[in-house]
Design a protein around this nucleic acid. Structure first.
Lengths: 244, 244
DNA sequence: TGTACATCAGTGAACGCGCGTTCACTGATGTAC
DNA sequence: TGTACATCAGTGAACGCGCGTTCACTGATGTAC
């Protein structure tokens, strides 16, 4: 999983146990949520003595960071795989978009505590290190690449009324987006970020229970919400008839 | 704060101390976040012995519930006050909407841990009782009332393309919304919920750090995001020139 | 208005628990010659 | 190929800590007569 291939038996064992620790921690997380994740519990699950874990992670925060990175990566990969799959089957930007949104939601529903770990309340006293930035960007990058493709193939309908004003995103983001979008899509990057927020927000609302007694059919509502959200960037999502 | 006015000195003292405990707990929460909220810490802050708190709250969860209700109420009141203020100064639906969104964000930025308590990851093992439903509905109710007013005064532009399909919200919600919306606003309720999600999502993204190195000017970006979001219900927000 | 009893708030000690982390150690694995 | 030494993984005991909750108690406040 890490850098170069392990040479010696010791290195192999170390890599395996590091992964085993992360796996056990992830299971704890899934069962009890982040606050219930303790080094001692993980060690117990592995039949080890607590102090042994310190050979692998300097402290609890380092283990948390590893889990956060894994969760972001798993989410990002789900999104990337869904997009690749859609692209391979000849889907247009709208269908790709929907596939990605659904994949992210699907993963989140399967791993609610991991989703909460990365998109829920920050763990107090914990400061995310820089290594989380890359993995965290994978979802917005996938969304962004679909927008870029859609824009270049002309499948974007200009939004009702682009918002005037200065650029509101950092240069890094503009760069990743492939430069300043041309009129009438001046605010396309800002709008894409809104769709990212709405994607994550819709999933969080569902998982955290804010749609209880509000929405009747979560699956369909999610699709509808994503369709509404995509209108903001002038992207039309497919609306397959649902016969359930 | 509770039911009827306290008659005896004992009752008055009880009401006051109950509030003092909640206040102390809220301060703890603000300082350390929900996981750091312990009965013992609260008792310490009040110069009491831990067991004394059990005269006022049956257990930790009950205290948590009280805080959750207070936070929802404070958020709801901020929204209601902002709307009332805007209405009094003759603002139209767009300006009211923006005022409400800004007020919610403002409160959240002042009370990030309380915001996280209600809209962040659920506390594991904690099940929100029914008393939280009313307070939690205040924000969507304010948004909904603005939409109703906007619809009845003709200040809503029909959305590009209403989404077909069955109603996706519960009857309770339809009732609060004043009944089934007429064409071409068939999906107006569903769309309004998307704007609610985006409002809360935008604030959460900002507070939880997901917009770090993404957005340059949080204030302006928030306004822009709300304007984009409001397009989904065909509501136009004012765009005052920002000269900062 | 005064007394006797009931109610209640707050105390202090104790319960059993789990936590993160340190440290000196043993014994196995790897390396150099 | 064999030996001597260095590296490292894992052990076991201990540290000091904070937690939620229970319980028998004291003393003050309220109530009934």
């Amino acid at each position: 999983m890490t850098a170069s291939a392990p040479r010696t038996a010791r290195e192999r064992a170390r890599a395996e146990l590091t992964q085993a620790i992360k796996d056990a921690a992830r299971q704890r997380l899934a069962a009890e949520g982040a606050p219930g994740l303790s080094l001692r519990a993980v060690a117990r699950d592995l039949g080890m003595v607590p102090s042994a874990l310190y050979r692998y992670f300097a402290n609890r925060d380092e283990l948390l960071t590893a889990l956060i990175i894994e969760a972001f990566d798993a989410l990002g990969e789900a999104a990337e795989v869904a997009d690749a799959g859609a692209r391979e089957s000849g889907a247009g930007p709208g269908a790709r978009w929907l596939a990605v949104c659904r994949a992210v939601r699907g993963w989140a529903r399967e791993h609610p505590h991991e989703f909460a770990l990365v998109y829920g309340s920050p763990v107090p006293g914990y400061q995310a290190p820089a290594d989380t930035v890359g993995p965290a960007s994978r979802i917005p990058n996938v969304l962004g690449s679909i927008v870029i493709d859609a824009a270049s193939t002309g499948s974007l309908h200009p939004p009702a009324r682009p918002l005037p004003g200065p650029r509101l995103v950092t240069e890094i983001v503009v760069e990743v987006a492939g430069g300043e979008p041309a009129s009438p899509y001046d605010d396309l990057i800002e709008r894409t970020i809104v769709t990212w927020i709405t994607l994550v927000g819709a999933i969080a609302f569902e998982l955290f229970g804010h749609l209880n007694n509000v929405v009747t059919d979560y699956d369909t509502y999610f699709d509808a919400a994503m369709a509404v959200s995509a209108e903001a960037i002038g992207l039309e999502l497919p609306r397959p008839p649902r016969l359930e």
